[in-house]
Design a protein around this nucleic acid. Structure first.
Lengths: 236, 236
DNA sequence: GTCTATAGTGCGATAGAC
DNA sequence: GTCTATCGCACTATAGAC
């Protein structure tokens, strides 16, 4: 797909073709990035096991909390033994830390790459909203986990998580400020508006169960958020 | 204060005078409502201890999760012994359950009482937004706890929590629909708009640390949310 | 690389003195 | 009503066979 295609006109299906992500490629990337943390050396063996481990972690942790999940449950759920599990993770907390740091690197890389496809502030902002929603749709359990389990992290990793929360917000804020300068947007509190937009983006992955039940697609949600944001930012 | 005073013109200070809540009255109400769950009979002794227990629970659980909090920590933090603690709670899960069900009853009662002070749909909606924000400001640790720890509850109590999430959303939805009928609002998807408004309301207590750091008051936040909602619902 | 078996820890909860 | 002391259990993590 041409890198010149506008994100603002992209739907979720098009987005998926653009990022070409499969479960296999995802966990291969995870294995490469965190190689030194695993005792396993053989990628062919590791990748499918990692997929099992992380998918089971999301099932268990996202339904009753990471702290409540025991490694015995995780072993049962993955069909592995306790000992087998420990070839892939050094400790329970390691799993949470890997999820957080992999998700951060993964998303920042994609956002940086895709958002440069638009030129004017308004299109860039609309593009960023779509990218964020589509990414969180593609990686919903990861986003949900990262949001709910941040406070279980050690202080060091907690600070990184907070920085990452503020990073997206900052991007949004800058785009609003640029839009005000170029008269596409009216004068307004850019930072507070950025926070409110962030809240709308996060609700998509925090309340997925609700939207799924109501059969609201991510494309429909994106267009509603875009409309709300524009109604609030554009001069009347 | 006169019950005729409009909520739409109320600030947080006025709201506090209206509900006349003090820590003591709050925990007295909690003791009365959950009397049968405590072994303690003497209210004079129980109320200050309950305050200590719940405030310590919020400190510990809201910073690193309820599951991670141990009863030994809670005992240290309250200056009580393990044995002493068990005169007030029958189990650790009891604490979470009491927080959830007390908060629900507490808020529903206040919302029902206050929201009837307005007449037209638009004012009612603005009033409901303010009441919700002010209540969550007054009881921030409670709201935060309820949001983050819902999934730790047993199935039975989890369902009640979900119902409560949908209850407010339903109120908002109905007010939007009424506003559409009375032509105050333009034709729009009332339910989806209600969800988005809910997300904005929840962000206030979920990201309190952020707003506090930026010195954004609940009054300012409320006016921004109101503006955003009206820009989106009113005809251009 | 994966298993079974188990060591060692720290938890929630209780019994009984005061 | 509150304390100290302790029980029994389930957990994380590891050692050693295969």
């Amino acid at each position: 797909m041409s890198p010149k295609s506008c994100i603002t006109q992209l739907d979720f299906k098009g987005f998926c073709q653009l990022v070409k992500q499969s479960p296999k490629s995802l966990y291969a990337e995870l294995f490469t990035l965190h190689r030194e943390q695993f005792s396993i050396r053989n990628e062919k063996i590791a990748v499918p096991k990692l997929q099992k481990i992380f998918e089971a972690t999301f099932r268990l942790a996202n339904s009753s909390g990471f702290q409540a999940m025991t490694l015995r449950q995780l072993a049962t759920e993955t069909g592995m033994s306790m000992g087998g599990l420990y070839a892939y993770i050094h400790s329970k907390d390691d799993v949470a830390q890997i999820i957080h740091s992999f998700l951060n690197r993964y998303c920042e890389e994609r956002i940086e790459r895709l958002r440069s496809l638009e030129v004017d502030p308004k299109s860039q902002l609309m593009g960023l909203i779509r990218i964020h929603l589509f990414l969180s749709e593609l990686m919903q359990p990861w986003f949900y986990f990262a949001y709910m389990e941040t406070k279980n992290l050690q202080k060091k990793h907690k600070l990184i998580a907070i920085e990452s929360e503020l990073w997206t917000e900052n991007l949004i804020q800058k785009l609003i400020e640029d839009g005000i300068k170029s008269k596409q947007f009216k004068q307004t509190d850019a930072l507070l508006n950025a926070s409110l937009i962030k809240a709308l983006l996060q609700d998509w992955y925090l309340k997925r169960w609700k939207y799924k039940k109501r059969k609201i697609s991510v494309d429909h949600y994106a267009s509603q958020v875009e409309a709300m944001v524009l109604n609030n930012l554009e001069p009347r």
